[in-house]
Design a protein around this nucleic acid. Structure first.
Length: 226
DNA sequence: GTCGGAATAC
DNA sequence: GTATTCCGAC
């Protein structure tokens, strides 16, 4: 049986395809059958989730001026929230940080040395993790994608899934693009997508060369975005 | 505070 | 595989 902790903390986020502060976090990211390598929410998903919600800004927030970098302002609270989500009441920052350190080798995260409780997401790795099907068919650039998503319609991906994958991918980029854009809170659902081109250009500036990055990552080489 | 090994759980 | 738990080392 599932435990009931889920309802607390981050209500309903795993039950629907919600847009919070204009950023998507689709169902598939939480589902065993579609979330790669995991049966439930992964820590880095959870971190991103907190980062995109204003109500947790006093607990964890993007580091202004540093792309993809975030600061855990209240380690105990983040650990408590994570423990609640995973039904692990004994969770603490020491344990949580151990889990974060396992991301170093996976190149999902790395530590910002010299800054307490500060970590940095690896931009290109998130793309691969969030959008695994593109490993076989990488787009020329996110910029193009944002301008004309309909162009990318791999035959192997059903239409509905495709749109969700797109949203998911946009999520991780937009989350960080928001940071770049001065931590403004975007509004409106993605369908209204009036800001796609705007944030797309921001993303493109920081996160271009997607295909190249994926090629490098799939070979297990060095990451150009580190 | 941070790191990473080791054992363990799911 | 992805944590969780524990812990010694720095």
């Amino acid at each position: 049986m599932h435990c009931s902790c889920l309802a607390e903390g981050i209500p309903a986020i795993a039950s629907r395809n919600l847009w919070i502060s204009g950023l998507a976090f689709p169902d598939w990211a939480y589902k065993a059958e579609s979330s790669p390598g995991s049966r439930q929410i992964q820590l880095w998903h959870f971190i991103l989730e907190l980062l995109q919600k204003e109500e947790f800004r006093h607990v964890i927030a993007w580091q202004q001026g540093e792309y993809g970098e975030f600061v855990i302002k209240d380690p105990d609270e983040v650990a408590r929230l994570w423990g609640r989500r995973k039904c692990k009441p004994q969770m603490n920052y020491d344990k949580l940080s151990r889990a974060l350190r396992y991301y170093y080798n996976k190149r999902i995260l790395h530590k910002t040395k010299g800054k307490r409780f500060t970590y940095k997401f690896n931009c290109s790795k998130l793309i691969v993790v969030n959008y695994p099907l593109w490993e076989v068919r990488a787009p020329p650039s996110l910029h193009l994608l944002l301008g004309a998503p309909a162009l990318f319609r791999p035959a192997l991906v059903p239409m509905g899934v495709q749109s969700e994958l797109l949203h998911s991918m946009l999520f991780s980029h937009r989350a960080m693009a928001e940071q770049l854009a001065g931590q403004r809170t975007p509004q409106g659902p993605p369908e209204a997508s009036g800001d796609k081109k705007g944030s797309g250009s921001v993303v493109h500036r920081e996160c271009s060369g997607l295909g190249r990055a994926q090629g490098i990552l799939s070979r297990g080489g060095e990451d150009p975005f580190d």
